[in-house]
Nucleic acid binder design. Structure first.
Lengths: 231, 231
DNA sequence: TTATGATCGTGATAAATGTCAATTAGGAGG
DNA sequence: CCTCCTAATTGACATTTATCACGATCATAA
């Protein structure tokens, strides 16, 4: 694995957050000055649920899992945070506490950005505020969709949905390395790990996917979509 | 039932949206001018999922149910819209389509507010933008919580949660008229209507609640909270 | 290499939840 | 009051999903 280097300045950042484009040079500089860079090893906790939202966290490189620590010690994985993503859960605007935890899956290069510096920009830059509203709304919509699917789809539908999520939202490829364990896939689809194994086998037997333990290859995407949609 | 009268002006409105307080008189007037008042009968659809979000909908009086029309014709009830609430789903900021339907439970007095007039204020009034961000974030957080609970709680926990929601969020009273049918309670907790009946009976038998078909009375709130939290 | 611990995979079984069929209760309108 | 319609309720049963027990596999470190 190549050694990760410091970014040093937002200007050098190749993966800048898309909404930063609405900022003036001065505003961008104020972000840069309120930035603290960090590198996380795989498995390390980057954000802990319940801790104060003093900063937003920007993903410069690597991937991380975003998860809620639920009841009876069970986790629920909300999704995968990717490079270019700004992690700033709803809690920051509600009760100043992180509403989920984030932990590194690969090595992760990240920047903590002071939340107050951030908040200030909302008031002064309307276009930025609007783009942020759009971002949070998109997140709320995806929660809404997951909530309903959780309620109405059965296991195979939920798992198919997640396999498509990895293909279309994370890796942008129908063949990918499954970065989550079966256990974690279960925490993302709310099913027992044994059931994940079984359904994956079913999907493989029916020729819908090819699953070589750590690799997933979607063979019949239309079929997988159908399974996902029909529940 | 008393005849509902027109409001005629936002100034007369006794239930104004709390975030409107951040607007200047001029801004408030522009809202008032882009307002269309309507009265709905019980059961009437106020917003249809998938329709264009040309307006936000303000609840002046009455209550309505907010629900997603999901797969296989099944509905999922997200919550109850109450007086003073502004209904403006995430879709307006994402793809300009309503992401859920809303239908009146009681008679409802409502105002349609032009969405563009609304959007304009975001850019010019930073405090208003921030208050809106807070509101949407709170909604996103409640979706997140429901999503996780859906996944991790069993039926009794989910139903207990909803009974508490009505007591604490809707009626602000531990004794209330259940405005949803058993079927609808099921659509809100993702369980079959028969199961709703059974669990309600269990709760009644254990002395946790008193349920007289259309009335709910919480007898042992701590116990109900425990059931809700422990799943 | 070998030991160790974790994840993966499988079958049997138990628990939770959904479906079906039939009956009862309650409310609106005549 | 009766009639009709819908919702509520109940029990039996089917399906779905979780849990348990166990062995296989794989990576890692001594």
């Amino acid at each position: 694995m190549p050694e990760l280097k410091l970014i040093n300045s937002c200007e050098n950042c190749t993966n800048g957050w898309k909404n930063f484009k609405h900022l003036t040079d001065n505003e961008m500089q104020s972000i840069n000055e309120n930035r603290y860079e960090a590198i996380f090893k795989p498995g390390e906790v980057m954000i802990k649920q319940g801790s104060p939202t003093s900063s937003a966290l920007f993903m410069a490189s690597g991937v991380a899992k975003v998860y809620v620590e639920g009841i009876r010690g069970k986790n629920f994985i909300i999704g995968i945070a990717q490079p270019g993503e700004l992690i700033m859960g709803p809690g920051g605007w509600v009760n100043s506490r992180h509403t989920y935890s984030v932990s590194a899956i690969t090595s992760v290069q990240a920047c903590f950005i002071n939340f107050d510096a951030f908040k200030k920009l909302i008031k002064t830059n309307g276009t930025f505020a609007e783009s942020l509203l759009e971002e949070i709304s998109a997140k709320a919509l995806s929660y809404q969709t997951r909530m309903v699917n959780q309620a109405q789809k059965r296991m195979s539908g939920r798992l198919a949905e997640i396999l498509l999520y990895f293909a279309d939202q994370v890796f942008l490829n129908d063949e990918y390395e499954m970065i989550l364990s079966r256990q974690e896939l279960g925490e993302m689809t709310s099913m027992a790990k044994e059931c994940v194994v079984r359904i994956l086998k079913e999907l493989e037997d029916s020729g819908t996917i090819d699953s070589d333990s750590s690799k997933i290859k979607i063979l019949d995407k239309e079929k997988l979509k159908l399974i996902s949609e029909k529940g």
